[in-house]
Every structure is written in C-alpha cells, then in structure tokens.
C-alpha cells in the first residue's frame, strides 16, 4: 500500500495530544453554551484537533493529499513497540508508587502513561520518513539510546530530588533529570545535535543560580562546541569564542540591561 508515512505520524501526533488534553480536561466543569465553564473551550478545541488529526491520517491513505514523499513503513517491529509499552508501564508504575498512597490521581497517571507511549511511538517513527542520509530509519543504537535516555532521566530525577540541599531546591532535580536524559540521547550520531543542544540549555539552568553567570556561560558554550567536530580539532577557536561571548554578554546583559543575576558562585 502506498501511504504518506510522515502524514500518518503527524496525524497520530495531533490525535494523541488531543486525547491527552481531553483526559486532563475531565477535571474541568463544561457548563452550558450560555454559561460556559472552564472546560468548555478546551473541550471543543481538543475535539476539533482530534478530528483534524484523524482527517490528516485519512487523507494520507487516499489518493489525495501530498504525494511528494511516499515512504514504505519500515521498522515497525513488535519488539520495539513492546519495549516502549513496557517502558511506559514502568514510568506509570513509578509514578503510582510515588503518589499511590497519598493522592492516587488516576487521570494524571493515565495521562503520563499515555504520554510516554505516545512519545515512544512517535519517536519510533519520526525519523523513518526521512530519506536523506543520516535521517534514514532508526538504527539500533538510536533506539536503545532513546529508551535509555528516558529511563536514565526519570531515574536521575527520582533519586536526586530527595538528596537535599541544592538538589532539592526549585527545579534543579528536574534539570538534572533532563540533562542526564539529553546527554544519554546524544550518544548515537543521529540524536547528537538534539541531545547536545538541549543539554546545553539544561546546564545553563543548573549552573546559573548556584555557580553564577560566568561559569554558566562557560559551561554552556563548551558543551555547545562539542556539537561541531571542527571545534574539537581547534580548541583555540573555542577559547576565543568563549572569551568573546563572555565580554559580549557582560556588556549587553549586565552593563546595559542590568539583569538581576548572581555573577559568581554563592
């Protein structure tokens, strides 16, 4: 069968987001058309979105629609789907054990599981429609890294949030979880840029309030430079760039805009 594979995934993506939204919206009072409650507009919007997503899928199967890139679905093997499902269940269970006794919020639990399944399923297919070079179907390494990143990120967040001090403050535990996840994700070449660039911003978030403006910048720039192979060969260029950016950011943000931020470690 000839289908526009990318559109199928895009449609699924829209439907899944809408489904999550509709579930979350169960908490809100719909009200009547005359006196709309907080849930009325979200309810309409998500229903419309789910419908549109279904339409996207429908059109991608027919003769109509974009027929530019028709890719044979590949790589949908049972093992991968099952392992993603298992991961989702694990994440859901983890969540339940954590809040299970205190507030067993089934809707949220369900949403998180659905979200994990959705993310897994979408991420599984998101690359296969690409036909240009590095963007071919998922490699084994990319798949393993994706699952490992999710597991490592969740575990890191789970264990570090109770560590006390810096780790229990604000969003630091979330940041560390994200950082670990993105760094693991960056191991296979296909995820390299996505993982590294996102990790850079996490580093910035983690460093800024504790270690200060300058160290946060240095950390972010150095990690960012890892993404480009040229930089690894020419460390002098990285040094120059770091110095230049430090001066520029000091001038723009500290001297001119005077933003309130720690400059040095506290």
């Amino acid at each position: 069968m000839r289908i526009n594979h990318r559109d199928v995934v895009a449609g699924l993506f829209l439907v899944l987001l809408a489904t999550i939204g509709l579930f979350l919206n169960m908490d809100h009072n719909l009200g009547t058309a005359r006196r709309m409650g907080p849930g009325y507009m979200p309810w309409m919007v998500f229903l419309l979105q789910a419908g549109l997503g279904a339409l996207v899928i429908f059109v991608s199967f027919g003769k109509r629609g974009e027929r530019v890139e028709v890719v044979k679905p590949e790589g949908i093997d049972i093992v991968r789907i099952v392992s993603v499902l298992m991961f989702a269940t694990a994440a859901g269970t983890l969540y339940l054990t954590q809040y299970g006794g205190v507030r067993a919020d089934k809707v949220v639990t369900f949403t998180i599981m659905a979200g994990a399944i959705a993310a897994g399923a979408i991420a599984l297919w998101i690359r296969s429609p690409e036909t240009d070079g590095t963007m071919a179907a998922w490699t084994q390494g990319e798949f393993v890294a994706f699952v490992a990143a999710m597991v490592a990120g969740v575990l890191a967040w789970y264990f570090i949030r109770g560590a006390g001090g810096y780790f229990s403050q604000g969003y630091n535990a979330v940041g560390i979880g994200m950082l670990v996840g993105f760094l693991v994700l960056a191991i296979p070449p296909g995820w390299r840029y996505l993982g590294l660039i996102c990790a850079c911003m996490c580093i910035f978030g983690l460093f800024l309030e504790k270690l200060g403006f300058y160290l946060a910048l240095i950390g972010t720039i150095l990690l960012a430079c890892l993404a480009e192979r040229d930089h690894i060969r020419k460390p002098l260029g990285v040094l120059g760039l770091t110095a230049f950016l430090l001066v520029l950011c000091w001038f723009v943000f500290i001297r001119e805009l005077d933003i309130r931020v720690n400059l040095w470690p506290t």
Partner: peptide, 14 residues
Amino acid sequence: YPSILVFCSIGVYS
C-alpha cells in the same frame, strides 16, 4: 550557534 544559544538562555531566564 553557541552565541545564539547563550543569548536565548540568558534572555529567557531574565
């Protein structure tokens, strides 16, 4: 790209 990244990070934080 490192410059854009740094500017985005500081901007969004501020």
